[in-house]
Amino acid sequence: MDAISGPAIAAAEPQSARRVMTPPSRFGDRAFEWLTLAMAMAVVVLVILLGWELCRGSSPAIRKFGFHFLTTSTWDPVAEQFGALPFIYGTLVSSLIALLLAVPLSIATAAYLTELAPLWIRQPLVSLIEMLAAIPSVILGLWGIFVMIPWLRDYPFPLLKRVFGWTPFFTGPIYGTSMLAGGIIIAIMILPIITSVSREILRSVPNLQREAAYALGATRWEVTRIAVLSYAKKGLFGAVILGLGRALGETMAVTMVIGNTPQIAASLFKPGYTLASVIANEFTEATTDLYLQALFEIGLVLLGTTILANLLAQALLQTMSTTSTTRAVQ
């Protein structure tokens, strides 16, 4: 059980400082390494599983509808006509509303937390934001239905209608459950993630940047704007895209306030529907095979869009961290 003879793998890759020199090969060591490797491979298996199951589940629908699935807007389970356009539209519009609301607030908060706030207030604020991130989607949805929607219906929505009623976006009757309400609830859901990622980015900006700006006589805000925010532009964009990825996939809270009506309407007061919420609502009611396959295909579209957003975000965040670290070293 002790030293297994044979080619010792002692020379194997002592690349980085944390990797220690490999001791003489033993059975226990080999077994443990293989075991952990097998577990780490779970991420590869999961990625393949996701793609495979969704493709398999939706392939008949893909073959039947082809590209039209993404470009037609009839969603009629009885007539077995399935077009996902209203859901794609709803997902994009609600996410866009969410980003418009959440991005300025999040980045301003991140700047406040790293640059502008008095030191004693920073940690408590960060803790509170982490707590907001811990609230489950379904509970925010519950609050949305019974507190936010009635309030929106009574105060902000009529005001919006009065002021911006001449645009096509704020017309028609006000029900409360609407695309706008969905966007607002998604904004609340993605505020914490954009804020905390942006905060990390701003913290990684080298102090030299700030010191140089201060030395030129800049005020605190000028330091933040010129030396920090513009330096971190790319990384902040990455944080926003990461938030977009979350927004696209938000399910429960949106389902509870968006109204769940597959339509494409300019007015944000009208109810909408998103990719994630149509799956949540109709999956267990799908009576025919084709209906279920169409919902699988919606899942595939959702997976594709969120993965695209995440890839873009990772790429942006990575360039940020490498440039900031190399520049910090120089």
Binding site: V43, G245, F283, T306
Partner: peptide, 28 residues
């Protein structure tokens, strides 16, 4: 364990998985 290149790929995949909407796991 592992080589830097493979590990950064695995790390990356884990991050991608963390961004997958939870409802898709239900579907899968």
């Amino acid at each position: 364990y592992g080589s830097a290149r493979v590990n950064s790929l695995l790390r990356f995949l884990a991050d991608v998985l963390n961004g997958v909407p939870s409802i898709t796991w239900g579907v899968v």
